[in-house]
Design a protein around this nucleic acid. Structure first.
Length: 462
RNA sequence: GGCCGGAUAGCAAAUCGGUUAUGCAGUGGAUUGCAAAUCCAUCUAGACCAGUUCGAUUCUGGUUCCGGCCUCCA
């Protein structure tokens, strides 16, 4: 029984799909004018985990994650680069996909681009204008009239009068109310623009997501997610737009992923304390990043630091060490799956609002059993290792060959290392431990750790 | 100012009204020529002050500190 924390009700709820045969989930994706940073990585990874879990529990899941490929920052950056906006956005979309692959993220089912959704936006804006919820101001911009939507603030727990009191001054506005937000914006002469019933211009950010989500998932769908910073005003405005235009409930469950922090402060562009995914990948492999992200609950803050990343790496190393060299048949896997309740516990953890830290701890319980079984019953250890790989796969972990994971990023070639191991072995046979230890120390220096066992010596990266 | 979160051992991070979280690190032991890996045992908790309770880290109230949103933000 899946429980999800719903930002709308501020509590965990049992998830009741609108149509159990067809779950719809929409997640706000990137605005593509720069490389993705670790904050984006967290949203990407967590909704990947969520999608994987939903797919194992429901026959069909449609995961839509949009791309915002038109907005002020994109225009500004394109001008700065003397570049066409499409060449800019295409470049960063490719980079994003590359980052995603490194993190083991499966592509969403549909990845709509705002610039392909103009008609859907026109349709929605038109409907809002016709209903008197939106208006075209003197400057030509079309605004949403926030006071016309009685439930405004239901997601963020804010009310209009409080917002009004704390509102920053908005001088140059033709808005009827300072809290009204833009649906369609008139283009300045040199800017990219689209023809619309209200004049040449471009869409506001909020309407993009309302239009794309309902277009692909219907007016009323199950889950809508994004980073916590989107809950206000972005998601609040989406609710106002979609429910205002369609006259029905928009989304049942709202999910928000917590921030990635640096020294307990939010990682953000404006604070200039962000790390790009590709930057971090220079020092850590993608699976380590993925593990790091899953090591805390998705709604808690996640502190980004070398110490925590190294912790993640060490933990993953323990996991991979346990499955190294072990393989089993489907039948054996089936047998241990039945006999032990790891899978049940693992699934229960994910069912409880996607509690990945608990799910990971189940993996470590399994590791302990594998390691202690190894000497007594190798067949069972093999089968349990297979089970570990299977459970890891549920959350996109442990799908690499263990040797490949444990040997990656080393400066010497396999042959060179094997040669050193051979030399050391000979020294050991001659009881020349000074030499053998020296060889081992040299390798340790290079980040290569040797492990002796009854079957000979193997190695891994530190 | 308004509205939200959070405070757990050396670090990270969950659960839970009474019983081992888990990973890394530490200590003792097994194993090893010595290590590494592994196993066994073990030490470090619940910001502070009240209250409810047979019993609270867990519930309630207050205090302190930290963070977020209210402007583009994942």
């Amino acid at each position: 029984m899946l429980k999800i924390y719903n930002t709308l009700s501020k509590q965990k709820e049992i998830f009741h799909p609108i149509d159990p045969d067809r779950i719809g989930m929409y997640v706000c994706g990137m605005t593509v004018y720069d490389y993705c940073h670790m904050g984006h990585a967290r949203v990407l990874v967590m909704f990947d985990v969520i999608t994987r879990h939903l797919r194992r529990n429901f026959p069909a899941v449609t995961y839509v994650r949009n791309i915002t490929d038109i907005d002020d920052k994109i225009i500004a950056r394109a001008i700065e680069n003397k570049e066409d906006i499409y060449s800019l956005t295409n470049r960063f979309i490719d980079a994003m996909h590359e980052d995603e692959r490194a993190l083991g993220i499966l592509p969403p089912d549909i990845e709509p681009r705002a610039t392909d959704a103009m008609d859907q936006m026109f349709y929605m804006i038109k409907s809002l204008v016709e209903k008197g919820i939106a208006y075209q101001a003197k400057n030509g911009d079309v605004y949403y009239s926030v006071r016309k939507f009685p439930n405004y603030g239901k997601l963020s727990g804010k009310n209009l009068d409080d917002l009004e009191a704390g509102a920053r001054v908005d001088v140059d506005s033709d808005k009827e109310d300072p809290l009204d937000f833009v649906l369609w914006k008139m283009a300045k002469p040199s800017e990219p623009s689209w023809k619309s019933p209200w004049g040449d211009g471009r869409p506001g950010w909020h309407i993009e997501c309302s239009a794309m989500s309902t277009h692909h998932l219907g007016n009323h769908f199950d889950i809508h997610g994004g980073g916590m910073d989107l809950s206000f005003p972005h998601h609040e405005n989406e609710i106002a737009q979609s429910e205002g235009a369609n006259g029905c409930a928009f989304v049942n469950t709202w999910m928000h992923v917590g921030f990635v922090n640096i020294n307990d402060e939010k990682m953000s562009k404006s604070l200039n304390n962000f790390f790009t995914i590709r930057g971090v990948l220079e020092s850590y492999d993608g699976e380590t990043l993925r593990y790091f992200i899953m090591s805390s609950h998705y709604r808690s803050p996640l502190n980004f630091s070398d110490n925590n990343l190294n912790n993640a790496k060490d933990s993953l190393t323990r996991l991979y060490t346990a499955i190294r060299g072990l393989h089993a048949s489907e039948a054996a896997l089936e047998e241990v799956s039945q006999r032990f309740d790891f899978e049940t516990k693992f699934n229960e953890a994910l069912d409880d609002d996607f509690n990945t830290p608990i799910a990971l701890s189940v993996l470590f319980e399994l590791v302990k059993l594998i390691n202690s079984t190894r000497d007594k019953d190798i067949d069972q250890a093999n089968a349990l290792a297979q089970l570990l790989v299977k459970l890891g796969g549920y959350i996109g972990l442990l799908q690499m060959d263990a040797d490949a994971f444990l040997k990656q990023g080393v400066s010497l070639s396999d042959d060179e290392i094997d040669e050193k191991i051979k030399q050391r072995h000979e020294a050991k046979i001659n009881k020349d431990f000074a030499t053998s230890d020296q060889i081992r120390d040299e390798l340790t220096e290079l980040g290569i750790v040797l492990e002796d066992s009854a079957n000979g010596t193997s190695w891994r990266r530190k």
